[in-house]
Design a binder for these strands. Structure first.
Length: 572
RNA sequence: UCGGGGAUGGUGUAAUUGGCAACACAACUGGUUCUGGUCCAGUCAUUGGGGGUUCAAGUCCUCCUCCCCGAACCA
């Protein structure tokens, strides 16, 4: 239920058409100039060799929202041109993550669907004298490519005749040549200052199984030779990608110009990818964290992958709003993770029901609490508001009696300055219960309190005193006789440095040692039995917590509440 | 070294395209409150540097500096 509300696209969501950025301005200009007769079409083009993370979310939101704002369509296309690393399980995971984020692709396509067309176009380039088979090794080709400020030299095979090229290329296709023995190259310009244009490789021989085309191909197209053509075939108008492809744009355009395409050609626009403080968002780095066992898996809640954030309780809508808010630019930048967290808090403050849970329990005894006719402490049901931000969420009944659990942090034998909570002689409010005054505490040999004693004021049922007196603090509690046992995972930043790896070059060096703390002796309010998997609730005064999808009574801390007391202590 | 891109507070994004630098996060003050939450009020930048054009420059010109990307048969 919660899952559904969180995931469906809220129509009031701020996909503000007035919002302006360089991409949207360009799209608007294209529309005004009537440059595309087919309307706006975009696509999100992941390679199915890893899991989606928050950085991809930015691209997804951009691609889909631009299509939505212009009444266009947005597709999901898998750029599956490298069979050695790709797999169906990534396809499934990516589709799942995109849907969870709140988007339904207008179609799901695969670059591999175009292998035949691409092959035919390659033959066309060969016959036009614009592509040739090179028999050299990868090393030789790399050598000849030259360097920055240093022109390349032409391959001795560059001027092979079209017929010989065609014949060789067909042999490559038919598996008559071994891996690495030959490639098909575009014949462009070995002197060009843009390295992308120095006769790039179009096809390489790979005698491997492709997860979709299986064993039908022995040669596979490179990214550049597949991407723009995929866009063109699908009718994409605006092909958005990240900054590092800027130099590839010339090649993207060159390829399209050589082909007999119908309709206006798509064009590529690059934007800066999303980076966040205290985390990493590169496939390689994430993979390393998982494979080296620094985290428990791709869905470890400390990771910035979408499946991890989902498990941790981040609402999809908060991620979407965050992505819309940060906008798009061409400036390399790194956003504070706090901004993302603030979107999560804002969303959850509105939607998460309040519950009480004691993470580090300390026994509290109300010494003057009444007994019933059997000499047992009376159990009273108190009515608590489920969400002060949303009356429609109603109230619930919570048992209250003589012995309660309170947070260890909420009692001090000797209170420091500005400590408003319980200490001998002070009066506080037990949320939704009564005002209680501390009369003392029993301590163990080490001097640690093990049982706090209080008296309650029977006139203060519900939490307010008829004489109007105020207390400085309200603390949460769970009735000892009705509490359920639970466990909670508290997550901290995975990295202790704002820019992981900045000084050493290797983020692993900046890994936070205790980025997760599991508390197993938690006392939870009875109603938490009913928490549905992945439901996010607020534990009052502590933070937002997501119920584990499998383990009952186990919660993941999504994000803590802002904590004024912690702040004050830090200042000192 | 060559080519491409970029530079606005602590952070990120804006600025009617030449007209009083806005918004959010963070931080700090204070107020409200049955969550030290939420909410409310306030403080926090003369736009990388120099020169120029102009009544007027973050926006235009010019020189400089610094940062990012690019030499896979990866994407």
């Amino acid at each position: 239920m919660t899952e559904l509300t969180q995931n469906s696209l809220n129509p009031s969501e701020a996909h503000d058409p007035k919002r302006s950025d360089f991409v949207r301005e360009q799209v608007a200009e294209d529309l005004d100039a009537g440059r595309f007769s087919r309307g706006v079409q975009t696509r999100f083009p992941p390679e199915p060799n890893g899991y989606l993370h928050i950085g991809h979310a930015k691209a997804i939101v951009l691609d889909f929202s631009i299509a939505q704002e212009n009444g266009g369509i947005c597709m999901l296309r898998f750029d599956d041109t490298n069979p050695t690393t790709e797999d169906q399980r990534y396809v499934d995971a990516i589709v799942e993550d995109v849907r969870w984020l709140g988007y339904n692709p207008d179609s799901i396509n695969y670059a591999s669907d175009y292998f035949q067309q691409l092959y035919e176009w390659a033959e066309l380039l060969i016959s036009k004298g614009l592509a040739y088979v090179d028999d050299q090794s990868a090393e030789q080709i790399a050598d000849q490519r030259g360097g920055f400020g240093r022109p390349g030299v032409e391959s001795p095979y560059r001027n092979r005749g079209p017929n010989e090229n065609l014949e060789l290329f067909r042999e490559m296709r038919d598996g008559m040549h071994s891996e690495g023995s030959r490639v098909l190259r575009a014949k462009i310009d070995m002197q060009n200052e843009n390295m992308q244009l120095r006769d790039p490789v179009m096809y390489r021989i790979r005698d491997v199984h492709h997860y979709r085309t299986e064993d039908t191909w022995k040669i596979y197209p490179s990214y550049d030779w597949a991407h723009g053509q995929g866009d063109a075939i699908e009718g994409v108008t605006h092909s958005l990608c990240s900054l590092e492809f800027s130099d590839n744009r010339a090649l993207y355009e060159w390829y399209l110009q050589q082909l007999p395409l119908e309709g206006e050609a798509p064009y590529q626009t690059e934007f800066a990818r999303l980076e966040l403080t205290y985390t990493v968002t590169s496939k390689r780095r994430l993979k390393q964290l998982v494979e080296d066992g620094h985290v428990t898996g791709w869905d470890d809640p400390r990771l910035p992958t979408l499946r991890a954030l989902r498990r941790r309780g981040y609402p999809a809508s908060a991620i979407r709003e965050f992505c819309m808010f940060i906008g798009v630019s061409r400036t390399n930048s790194r956003h504070d993770i706090e901004l993302l967290e603030s979107f999560v808090r804002t969303e959850l403050n509105q939607t998460a029901q309040r519950r009480m849970a004691v993470l580090r329990p300390l026994k509290l005894v109300i010494t003057n609490w009444p007994e019933d006719e059997n000499g047992q402490p009376v159990v009273e049901m108190r009515t608590l508001v489920n969400n002060p931000e949303n009356d429609a969420d109603g109230t619930r009944e919570v048992p209250f009696s003589r012995e309660l659990w309170i947070e260890q942090d909420d009692f001090r034998m000797e209170p420091p300055p500005k400590y408003f909570r319980l200490s001998p002689g002070t009066e506080v409010r037990l949320r939704g219960g009564y005002l209680v005054t501390c009369t003392g505490a029993i301590c163990d040999e080490a001097g640690n309190p093990v049982e706090v004693h209080c008296t309650y004021d029977p006139q203060t049922a519900g939490g307010s005193a008829p004489d109007g007196r105020k207390v400085k603090s309200t603390i949460h509690w769970v009735d000892a006789g009705h509490a359920i046992d639970g466990s909670v995972a508290l997550y901290d930043r995975l990295f202790k440095e704002k820019l992981p790896g900045e000084t050493t070059g290797n983020p692993i060096d900046d890994l936070h040692q205790d980025s997760v703390e599991v508390l197993r002796d938690c006392k939870l309010e009875q109603s938490l039995c009913d928490a549905t998997p992945n439901e996010v609730v607020q534990f009052e005064r502590l933070g937002y917590f997501a119920a584990d999808s499998e383990l009952e009574g186990h919660f993941h801390r999504t994000v803590g509440l802002r904590d004024e007391w912690a702040r004050l202590q830090k200042q000192k």
